[in-house]
Design a protein around this nucleic acid. Structure first.
Length: 225
DNA sequence: GCGACAG
DNA sequence: ATCTTGTCGC
């Protein structure tokens, strides 16, 4: 059972990120696109009732057919603070991952990995505590900048931190549609992460993994007591 | 000091 | 994230 420490405050949360950051592995390429089992994770909130529902859905990367899924419901343990999203989402996400009966070869997160103020976003955190290769696909550029990529599916451009460092890639998954923002989490190369993101998005802007996880966690939240 | 800011 | 059905268009 993997878990995450719930910080008492924001300062402690940042300290935990600074401590865990060194454990991120960046010199592995990860599973090849279109091969193995890929999990998608997402969460839905009901702040009124103090509830969080997480879902993990595993797809066969070759066919995109689901081979496993699990959910978990918990209580909101941390407020939403940009840069500290992992402390809000991971406790319940890890519970859902633990409930899976299959072990994924890669986990796709709804958010960022290295594209983070301290280079330790949600996907890095998840990867480090589970040991699994992980990556992030976000719907918004957060505080990062990028040049508009070409208009065709598959076109991309570097996602840049304020200091000019490349922290990910703006990737067009559909012709003429706003790109998604891909960054490495743990034990995956940026090239492979982008190839996975593209292979997982044959019909919609968002990868099938997160689309499936999104609908599943919403259903779990509705059905939660 | 102020604003911006993944989900 | 969340409030939310049908509808316009390819």
């Amino acid at each position: 059972m993997t878990t995450v420490k719930t910080p008492a405050d924001e300062a402690e949360a940042r300290a935990i990120q600074d401590e865990l950051r060194d454990r991120v592995v960046l010199d592995e390429t990860g599973p090849l696109p279109g091969r193995g089992l890929v999990a998608g994770v997402d969460v839905a909130y009901d702040d009124e009732r103090d509830l969080v529902a997480a879902a993990a859905v595993v797809l066969d990367a070759a066919t995109l057919e689901p081979v496993g899924e699990a959910t978990a419901v918990g209580h909101v343990s941390f407020p939403y603070v940009p840069g500290l999203l992992a402390f809000r989402e991971l406790p319940t996400v890890l519970a859902a991952l633990d409930a899976l009966t299959v072990v994924p070869d890669l986990v796709v997160c709804d958010g960022y990995g290295l594209a983070h103020p301290r280079r330790f976003g949600l996907a890095c955190h998840l990867g480090v505590v589970t040991g699994l290769p992980s990556m992030g696909v976000a719907k918004n550029p957060f505080t990062f900048s990028y040049g508009e990529p070409g208009a065709r599916r598959g076109d991309s451009s570097p996602l840049l931190a304020p200091d000019g460092a490349v922290v990910g890639r703006a990737l067009r998954t559909r012709d003429g549609v706003k790109p998604v923002y891909v960054s490495v989490g743990h034990r995956v190369s940026l090239d492979n992460a982008c190839a996975h993101a593209l292979a997982l998005s044959p019909a919609y802007r968002i990868p099938e993994t997160t689309r499936r996880a999104d609908s599943l966690c919403r259903r779990a939240l509705r059905e939660a007591s």
